[in-house]
Simulated scan of single mutants.
Amino acid sequence: MPERWRFVLISLAALIGIAVTLSLGRWQLQRAGYKQALFEAVQRQQRQPPWDNAQLAAGLAGPAVQASPAPWLHRPVQLHGHWIGAQTLYLDNRQMQGQPGFFVLTPLRLAPPHGDVVIVVQRGWVPRNFQERTALPEVHTPEGLVTVEGRMQAAPSRLYEFGGRAGADPDGQKSRIRQNVDITEWAAASGLPLRDASLLQTGEASEGLRRDWPEATAGVEKHHGYAFQWFGLAALITLLYVWFQIIRRFVRPSRSRS
């Protein structure tokens, strides 16, 4: 291959490499900016005054539930209602502070005049009995009118199920242990008017439940790290090209001839 064409091909490859790595670095910065903006929006929502029963019932009514993002998402609430303890479910294989156990879910029916609104509450975490895996831990569910504080979330997060369907449990639906829960199926099976949302209960440990929920973070550090790597690679390609294809090819030979 003629020297001229070799120089052209190397130059073209270097330009493409620099353009690609710069583009990837810029994309990582854009991802970091998007996540930071999303995190700040969540933080602003969580700093809002808490909704009461009437405000939540209005926020969950009509087409607003389908909005993206929903106006109730991450909103603090302070609700009054009654636990439906007989419908409590236990989500299996959930961790808190690195320990495996259950997330306890209990429907909460809002106090009148909003009794037609029933919310799934993620009440907290309990350890499981590894000696008897189907044994349910003891959780106290108060009767009568209760006050529940927390923040609104989407439906409980899902774990991967090997060959199972949504909501399957190890006892073939005979126990209240579930790998995942589908609120629509839960509503159909229980006859409760469950809303397609959940409440993450906050506060100190009580009723046999821990509530050391992880704090949300922006998670932009890894994107900044990836961007630095891509920009560093672009700089490296540039330095290598300048040294081998310009300095060693043109500058040094001209100096040696002089």
Rank of each mutant, 00 (worst) to 15 (best):
V120N: 05
V121Y: 02
R123N: 11
Q131M: 09
L24Q: 13
R26S: 15
F103T: 14
F228C: 12
E149V: 12
V146I: 13
E3H: 11
R249Q: 08
A235L: 10
F162A: 08
R248H: 06
L56H: 01
L12A: 09
Q99T: 11
R252Y: 09
I177P: 00
T202L: 04
F103M: 08
G144C: 10
Q99F: 06
L136C: 01
R158Q: 11
R210G: 08
A37F: 11
W243Y: 14
V104E: 03
A54S: 13
F162K: 09
V20P: 06
L233K: 07
L136P: 00
G219P: 00
L12K: 11
S198C: 03
E215I: 07
A64T: 12
P253G: 01
L60W: 04
L108E: 05
M1L: 08
E221M: 05
R158I: 10
V104K: 01
A227E: 01
G33I: 08
Q28Y: 05
G85F: 11
T141K: 02
A235C: 09
Q43L: 13
M1K: 10
Q43S: 13
A58D: 15
V65T: 14
A54L: 13
G98R: 00
G225L: 04
A234Q: 11
E204Y: 14
A216L: 15
L194P: 00
W72H: 05
V220N: 04
I247E: 14
D182H: 00
A14V: 05
A64P: 05
H82C: 12
L110C: 10
T134Q: 10
A37D: 12
E40V: 13
G164K: 00
A189S: 08
P76K: 08
R128W: 12
R94G: 01
P76E: 09
S175Q: 07
Q48H: 11
I84E: 15
L199M: 02
R75D: 03
H74D: 03
E161F: 05
Q48P: 06
I246E: 10
L15Y: 09
A235T: 12
E185S: 13
G232H: 11
Q36S: 10
L194R: 00
H140C: 13
E138M: 12
K222P: 05
S157P: 01
